[in-house]
Structures are given as C-alpha cells and as structure tokens.
C-alpha cells in the first residue's frame, strides 16, 4: 500500500514545488514599470463602475432582480465589473504574456530542459496570473463595501468566487494562447472579450433578451461568472450559483488540460 501511494504523493509534492518555481520566476521578473500596468488593471473596472454604474444608473433608477430583490443600478453593475476585471486580469497574463514568453522569449525552451514539465509550467503561470487577478478582486471588493454596494460578509464570500473566475479564465486563455499564430490573432480575441464584456448580463439583465439570445448568453463563461458573483454580493435567490461554480471548475480543468497538452506538443519537438 505504502509503495503504491507514496510515489504518487512524492510526485504531487514535486510537481507543485516545480510549479511554484515557475511562479517564483515571475516574482523575480517583476519590475517597477510593471507596477504601473498592474494599477491600470484595477482602475479600469472602477471607471466603468463610476461612469455607467453610478452615472447612467442615476438615469435608470432601481432594478428588480429575478429573485425579486430590488437593487440600485450601481449595485447591479458592480458585481459584473468585478467578474469581468477578474477575467481581464487573468487573460492579460495568460494570453499576451504567456504567448510572448513561449513564442518570442523562448523562455520555456530553457525551462523544459530542467525537471519542470509543461503541465507544471501551465500551473505555475496560472498561479501567477491569479496572484495578480486576486489583488484586483480584493481591491474592487473593498471599493464595493465602501460604496455600500455590498455587505462586508458578502464581500468575503465573493472573494474566493472571484478567484475561481480568474482561474477559469486564466486556464481558458492559456489554452487559447497555444493556438495563436501571431500577435494579429489577439485582435480577434480582444474583440471576443469585448463582446462578452458588453452582453454577459453585465449592463443589462439577460432576461431582457429574446429567448434564443438569452440562452446563448447564459452558456458563456462570463455570464456564469457574473451570475455567480452577483448572487453572492447582492442577490438572495436560491442555489443556482452552485451550477456556476461547477461550470467554472469544468472550464478550469479543460483549459489546463488543453493548455498543457498543447504545450507539450509545441515544446517537445
């Protein structure tokens, strides 16, 4: 029994140690210029919240959620901004930066000559993306509490959810990045990202769309993320958010699997 289980355990601890070394590399590479970039990731959703949530919200008034809860428009928009900033932060790191490291810096060509394997690189990069994404989420939740858009206890519950959202999108982005041929392909991805940002029940409840469109919107990952975070921060209705959690976990697993498989194919030439 011991001989069967022990190698596995050693394997897992060695793998996580190796993943951590990839994350550590990114911490070492962090430079002052980069900090400015990090700040922009936090400011962007805040500007949307102020301009549209609060600004446009003043013209719209209150909204009634499917559960019957009545909330201000700002409180409706805020969780969506949190979800999409978790998405944006994770994607920025796992698509652009990851692609650059793999294709142009040839960073991983050096890494695979060590005991570190593609799956561990993917995991390490994802963990790094999440360090960044989680920082955004935490800061944004603080803003939401300060602006009285959610309760402190709800904000605490929403934090791990936002981290999960980041993980799922990070893994998805990494999988997509392995299919990218050049920087031009990223324009397409940015457009897709913007479409998701506009129509995932972010500014308008999905219930407002015609049935077919609504169905389409509800299967997109950002919609599930918005739905999850909104349920935790403002809504009271039901347990349907557990479905979101399962959905995001599935995206995370699939993304990681595809990304590490593809990396293996691209790197072990």
């Amino acid at each position: 029994m011991v001989t069967l289980v022990l190698p596995r355990l050693v394997d897992v601890s060695a793998a996580s140690r190796r993943s951590a070394s990839v994350t550590e590399r990114n911490v070492a590479a962090l430079r002052s210029v980069y900090w400015l970039l990090l700040v922009s990731g936090f400011v962007e959703p805040l500007l949307y919240l102020l301009s549209i949530g609060v600004g446009v919200g003043a013209l719209i008034g209150d909204l009634t959620l499917p559960s019957g809860a009545v909330v201000t428009y700002a409180a409706f928009v805020a969780p969506a901004m949190l979800a999409s900033s978790a998405m944006t932060g994770a994607l920025a790191e796992t698509t652009f930066n990851f692609f650059g490291k793999m294709k142009y810096m040839k960073l991983y060509d050096g890494v695979i000559a060590t005991p570190v394997q593609p799956f561990e690189i993917a995991l390490g990069e994802l963990a790094w993306a999440m360090l960044r994404g989680s920082a955004y989420s935490a800061a944004f939740l603080v803003v939401m509490v300060v602006m009285d858009l959610t309760a402190p206890a709800r904000a605490l519950a929403a934090f791990p959810a936002a981290v999960l959202v980041g993980f799922a999108f990070g893994a998805l982005g990494m999988a997509i990045a392995t299919f990218m041929r050049s920087w031009q392909d990223f324009d397409l991805m940015s457009s897709m990202q913007f479409v998701l940002f506009l129509f995932s029940g972010t500014f308008v409840p999905a219930e407002a769309y015609p049935a077919v469109l609504r169905w389409l919107v509800e299967v997109t990952p950002l919609y599930r993320a918005v739905h999850l975070i909104r349920a935790l921060t403002v809504d009271t209705g039901g347990w349907s958010w557990t479905l979101d959690v399962l959905y995001l976990l599935a995206v995370l697993a699939a993304g990681l699997l595809i990304a590490s498989r593809r990396m293996g194919r691209l790197l072990y030439k």
Binding site: A14, R18, S21, E24, R25, A28, M105, G110, T114, P115
Partner: peptide, 21 residues
C-alpha cells in the same frame, strides 16, 4: 541561447536553480 531577458545575469542562474528545486 534562451536566457531569460527579464532577469539579471545572477537571477538567470538563481531562478534556473529553483527549477531544479
């Protein structure tokens, strides 16, 4: 050469050492 352009000369060695645990 596939050195890490975002790191210093020293960090290229220390970071690489970490990949070996």
């Amino acid at each position: 050469d596939n050195l890490d352009p975002e790191l210093t000369v020293r960090e290229n060695l220390t970071t690489y050492a970490r990949y070996f645990g």
